[in-house]
Design a protein around this nucleic acid. Structure first.
Lengths: 204, 204
DNA sequence: TAGATTGTTAATCGATTAACAATC
DNA sequence: TAGATTGTTAATCGATTAACAATC
C-alpha cells in the first residue's frame, strides 16, 4: 500500500512530520489542512491529498488530531522500524553525517563508516567505528545495513556502489556528482550540494 | 532569457555538465543526445530539449561538439562569473562544506563561515575565517556574498535566515529541517538529508 | 441550523514522450 | 543517396488545483 503513493507526495511527508513535531503542544491538539498549507507554502487541497495516503482521517470542522497525524506519518515512513545505514567515505561530509543526530527522527541508525585511508581505519567517530572499505560486505552484514550513503570523490563512487550492491544494500543516498549504475532494484537518490547552489545562483 | 527555463530542466543542466566534464577527451570530440541519455538514464528527446535552452546547437548526424556544449552549459549556469557564498553554522556539516572543493566547478567561492560558538569565532577552516554570527551583515558585505548556506540546528535557522535577508543575500540553501519564511524575492532550496534517506527507506 | 472543514471527482496545468520533418 | 541525428510540434502522462458534496 505504501507503494502507490506518488513520489512527490512521499517527499512531502517528512516535511509535514517535521512541522507537526515542532509545534508547541498548547493550543494545537487539532490542526487543519489550511493551517499546515499556510505554514509550509503548499496548497491546502494538496495537503489533504498527501495526508490521505496515511491512515489518519481528519474531522470536518476541526481538522486533524495532531498526535494521531504524527503517529500516522511515522507509521507510513516506518520511523518505528529501526533501519541500519552505513557511510562510505569518511571525509568532511561523511564524518559530519556520522555525527549527525537527525537520522533517529526516522528510525535510522547510522552504524559504521568505511574509508580507504589507513589513518582513519580503526578509529571511531561519534562512537561509530571506521572500517576498511575493502570490508564493506562484511561490515554491512555485521550491522544488518540496508541503507548506504556514498560520500567519496566522484572517481571512486561507482566502485563503492558496486561493493554496496554486492553487500545487499537496498538503497543509496549518493553525494558524489556522478550517475551510479547499479541494478535497478536498488533505489538511488542523488544530492549534489554544489549543483543546487549553482541552480540557485543561475536564477538570480 | 535564462529565466524561462523550466525548473526541472535547469536542475538537470549541472548533471549534463558533470557528465561531459568527466568524459575522457579521446574519441569524444562529439557526443549525441542518445549517448548522453543512455549514460544518465534520461529520455533522449528530453536531453535535446534541455540542451536547447543553452546556446549550443547540435549537428545532425554527428551530435554536439563536446567542448562547445560544456562551454554553453558553463555560460548558462554562470560558472565563469564568480559568486561569493557564506555558510551560517560551522558544525560538522558547515565545516565540511567550508572545506569542500566542489563549488569552484560552478564559479562559487565559499568565503566565510559564521557561528555563535566563541570557541570557533576567530578561527580558520580551510583558510576561511569563522566570524561571529552577530556580524552576518558586515561579513556578507565585506565578501560581496549573494549566496548563503544555512547549516544550523532547526531552532535557530529562521533567525539566521532573517539576518541573511537583512544582509542582502539573494538565495539560500537550507539544510535545517524547517520551512524558512523570508521575502519571496529570496530563492530558497531545502535539503533535508535525513528525510531523503527516510524516503528511500519507506520505498523498500 | 449555519459555518467550517474534510475527502473526492473533474478540470487544469506543466513536464515528458512520441511523431516527424529538416539536415548534414 | 541513405542513414543518423537534430529540433519542433502534437500527444500523453502525471501532478496540482478547482469545484463541490458530505459531515461534524
Amino acid at each position: 500500500m505504501n507503494k502507490d503513493i506518488p513520489n512527490f507526495s512521499l517527499q512531502r511527508l517528512p516535511v509535514y512530520l517535521n512541522y507537526l513535531r515542532g509545534l508547541p503542544e498548547e493550543n494545537n491538539a487539532y490542526i487543519s489542512s489550511g493551517a499546515i498549507a499556510k505554514a509550509l507554502g503548499f496548497g491546502e487541497v494538496l495537503v489533504r491529498k498527501d495526508l490521505a495516503y496515511t491512515s489518519c482521517v481528519g474531522r470536518p470542522k476541526v481538522g486533524y488530531l495532531r498526535e494521531e497525524l504524527i503517529a500516522a506519518l511515522e507509521e507510513f515512513l516506518c520511523c518505528n522500524a529501526q533501519k541500519n545505514a552505513v557511510i562510505v567515505g569518511v571525509g568532511g561530509l561523511g564524518r559530519a553525517l556520522l555525527s549527525y543526530g537527525g537520522f533517529v527522527r526516522y528510525g535510522i541508525n547510522v552504524a559504521v563508516g568505511f574509508d580507504v585511508d589507513p589513518e582513519k581505519i580503526g578509529t571511531e567517530i561519534a562512537g561509530k567505528p571506521v572500517l576498511d572499505a575493502k570490508d564493506i560486505k562484511e561490515g554491512c552484514a555485521k550491522f544488518g545495513a540496508t541503507l548506504a550513503i556514498i560520500a567519496v570523490p566522484a572517481h571512486c563512487a561507482q566502485e563503492m556502489a558496486q561493493r554496496l550492491a554486492e553487500a545487499g544494500i537496498k538503497a543509496i543516498l549518493n553525494f558524489a556528482p556522478v550517475q551510479l549504475s547499479v541494478d535497478e532494484s536498488i533505489k538511488v537518490i542523488n544530492i549534489d550540494v554544489a549543483a543546487n547552489l549553482a541552480v540557485l545562483a543561475s536564477r538570480l
